[in-house]
Amino acid sequence: MSDPMPVFDDLREESEELDRLVAELSPQEWSLATPASRWSIAHQIAHLSWTDNSALLAVTDPDGFRTLVEKALGAPDSFVDEGAEEGAHLPPAELLSRWRDGRTALDRALRGAPRSARFPWYGPPMSAASMATARLMETWAHGQDIADTLGVVRTPTDRLRHVARIGVRARDYAFGIRGLEVPGEEFRVELLPPSGHDLWTYGPEDAPQRVTGPALDFCLLVTQRAHRADLAVRAEGPDADRWLDIAQAFAGPPGAGRPPKGDAA
Rank of each mutant, 00 (worst) to 15 (best):
residue 244 L to A: 03
residue 244 L to R: 04
residue 32 L to T: 03
residue 149 T to R: 00
residue 7 V to N: 08
residue 90 L to K: 15
residue 205 E to R: 07
residue 59 V to N: 02
residue 222 V to L: 04
residue 156 P to K: 12
residue 7 V to A: 06
residue 236 E to N: 02
residue 87 G to R: 07
residue 122 Y to E: 07
residue 256 A to R: 14
residue 29 E to S: 12
residue 5 M to G: 05
residue 225 R to I: 08
residue 19 D to A: 11
residue 250 F to T: 11
residue 146 I to P: 02
residue 251 A to E: 13
residue 41 I to Y: 07
residue 126 M to N: 02
residue 56 L to K: 04
residue 162 H to L: 05
residue 114 P to D: 13
residue 95 L to C: 11
residue 98 R to S: 13
residue 15 S to K: 06
residue 46 A to D: 10
residue 218 F to A: 01
residue 256 A to T: 12
residue 112 G to T: 03
residue 109 A to R: 03
residue 242 R to Q: 13
residue 73 L to F: 10
residue 26 S to H: 04
residue 210 R to S: 13
residue 7 V to L: 06
residue 33 A to L: 09
residue 227 H to A: 14
residue 10 D to W: 06
residue 234 R to V: 09
residue 232 A to W: 02
residue 35 P to F: 06
residue 237 G to M: 00
residue 3 D to C: 06
residue 232 A to S: 07
residue 14 E to K: 03
residue 161 R to Y: 10
residue 223 T to G: 01
residue 33 A to F: 01
residue 96 L to I: 07
residue 212 T to G: 01
residue 1 M to R: 08
residue 46 A to S: 14
residue 139 T to S: 02
residue 120 P to E: 12
residue 71 K to D: 15
residue 204 P to C: 05
residue 21 L to Y: 09
residue 223 T to F: 00
residue 178 R to N: 08
residue 137 M to K: 00
residue 131 M to V: 07
residue 161 R to P: 02
residue 170 A to I: 06
residue 9 D to N: 14
residue 10 D to G: 06
residue 215 A to N: 02
residue 219 C to I: 05
residue 259 P to W: 03
residue 203 G to A: 01
residue 264 A to Q: 15
residue 260 P to A: 11
residue 124 P to Y: 01
residue 117 A to H: 01
residue 221 L to R: 00
residue 184 G to C: 04
residue 127 S to N: 02
residue 254 P to K: 09
residue 84 A to L: 10
residue 57 L to V: 05
residue 20 R to I: 10
residue 162 H to Y: 14
residue 131 M to W: 01
residue 260 P to D: 13
residue 51 T to P: 06
residue 247 A to T: 10
residue 258 R to V: 13
residue 227 H to D: 13
residue 95 L to N: 09
residue 165 R to M: 12
residue 78 S to A: 14
residue 174 A to E: 03
residue 216 L to V: 12
residue 254 P to R: 12
residue 55 A to T: 09
residue 36 A to Y: 03
residue 110 L to E: 03
residue 192 L to H: 02
residue 157 T to F: 01
residue 73 L to K: 14
residue 114 P to L: 03
residue 57 L to Y: 04
residue 232 A to G: 00
residue 252 G to R: 06
residue 27 P to F: 05
residue 22 V to H: 07
residue 178 R to W: 05
residue 56 L to C: 11
residue 106 L to D: 08
residue 121 W to T: 05
residue 256 A to M: 10
residue 139 T to N: 00
residue 156 P to T: 13
residue 258 R to D: 09
residue 171 R to I: 11
residue 114 P to S: 14
residue 122 Y to N: 03
residue 107 D to E: 15
residue 8 F to S: 07
residue 242 R to M: 10
residue 128 A to T: 06
residue 259 P to Q: 10
residue 201 T to V: 01
residue 206 D to R: 00
residue 124 P to E: 12
residue 239 D to E: 13
residue 113 A to Q: 05
residue 27 P to W: 09
residue 204 P to G: 03
residue 189 V to K: 00
residue 50 W to S: 11
residue 143 G to Q: 04
residue 128 A to S: 09
residue 3 D to I: 08
residue 256 A to L: 14
residue 191 L to G: 00
